[in-house]
Design a binder for these strands. Structure first.
Length: 362
DNA sequence: TGCGTTACGGTTGAC
DNA sequence: CGGTCAACCGTAACG
């Protein structure tokens, strides 16, 4: 119940099986890569398996987003009220109609397209459960809106992976399906590092969290109050100043705090160390291998954090934008020549800090 | 040695 | 309200 669980990988890093890495670390992975640090070095420094580093970077390169994909949930349902309504009408008009005929008519009438037309079995179920019993007085469906086009069917994945900075959706509504890929990149991560030296701040823990919450309310960005809100980034607050090395950061990575063991990489130890899943995500705070797990008692962020306040929260809607991708990335790859030694890496890290600390020092 | 890939055991959330 | 299912996760290991 209150267990603080986590595991330690071969590199000494802490992770929670089945859960995404904190955004702070995901971001750091991308940033370091952009600085020309080799994935293997990133892996070692952040103590994240190289497979994971590879995956995150590949995803980033492909989509421009560092966000994890949508976890859980089901496919968007195809039997929308509108579809049911039509089925009902078809059935009413021809009580002997077969399910497959209904299916064909749904397609013919453009109620659905081939991608979201219900299966015959689904139609049968609808006929049996909803229409057969006639439990619903019909007509109270959501208006006359055509809710069954592919666009409106809300591909649930997108709300996670492609932070869509829609023109509206002030309530952070379930953003209408937006196709992936297209929009990736026009959002960015705010960049101002918390504090370059504080372990707690390096990953932007508490204070950022609060910021995030506050900002989130401003634009209606919705962060699920659960795990996916690791992506607790607000896309609005920094959109105008996003061109610091192409990376914007600051409102994010507040979510986690990972107490990593100070390993032999002393030079880096101050860089990676603190992380832990927020209490908001119901995970205990845990420390590194040496320290064992810290009991989740101290709740550095209470469940009723600011994050929980900003407007309507729709559980699965992460419209947070951590997506960013900047053109100059390749240029940075020139650093790649550096052999990836820790010293070099540290320089790069310092570079990051140098780039990104407008006013972060406490 | 670096890194892409994948099996595995895990979590999540809509249905 | 608990079970199912299909999505995703990161690690570890392989090549």
């Amino acid at each position: 119940m209150e267990q603080a669980y986590g595991e330690v990988n071969q590199l000494g890093g802490v992770f929670v099986n089945g859960r995404p890495l904190p955004n702070a670390i995901r971001l750091r992975i991308v940033e370091l890569a952009q600085l020309g640090i080799r994935p293997c070095d990133i892996s070692r420094q952040l103590r994240v398996s190289h497979g994971c580093v590879s995956k995150i970077l590949a995803r980033y390169n492909e989509t421009g987003s560092i966000l994890p994909g949508a976890i859980g949930g089901s496919k968007p349902r195809v039997t929308t009220p509108n579809v049911v309504k039509h089925i009902r009408e078809y059935k009413h008009g021809d009580p002997g109609i077969f399910a497959w005929e209904i299916r064909d008519r749904l397609l013919a009438d453009n109620v659905c397209d081939k991608y979201n037309v219900p299966s015959v079995s689904s139609i049968s179920r609808i006929l049996r459960n909803k229409i057969g019993s006639l439990s619903q007085p019909g007509g109270q469906y959501e208006g006359s809106k055509q809710a069954s086009t592919p666009q409106s069917t809300l591909p649930y994945n997108h709300i996670y992976q492609y932070p869509y900075t829609g023109p509206m959706s002030p309530g952070g509504t379930k953003v209408g399906g937006h196709h992936p890929g297209v929009s990736a990149g026009h959002v960015s991560i705010p960049r101002h590092w918390p504090s370059a030296h504080s372990v707690t701040n390096i990953l932007g823990i508490r204070t950022f969290m609060e910021q995030t919450g506050a900002l989130a309310g401003s634009e209606g960005s919705v962060y699920p109050h659960k795990m996916e809100d690791w992506a607790c980034v607000n896309r609005s607050g920094f959109s105008s100043s996003q061109n610091l090395n192409g990376l914007e950061k600051g409102v994010m990575e507040a979510d986690i705090k990972y107490p990593q063991p100070a390993s032999s990489l002393s030079a880096v130890s101050g860089f990676v160390p603190a992380c832990a899943y927020t209490s908001a995500n119901q995970y205990g705070v845990y420390g590194g291998p040496g320290g064992g797990y810290v009991p989740p008692g101290h709740h550095w962020q209470s469940q009723s954090s600011p994050l929980a306040h900003h407007g309507p929260i729709h559980g699965g809607d992460i419209t947070a934008s951590m997506a960013f991708k900047h053109p100059g990335r390749e240029a940075l790859a020139m650093n790649r020549k550096s052999s990836g030694s820790i010293m070099k890496t540290q320089e790069a890290i310092n570079l990051v800090h140098g780039l990104s600390i407008p006013a972060s020092s406490s």
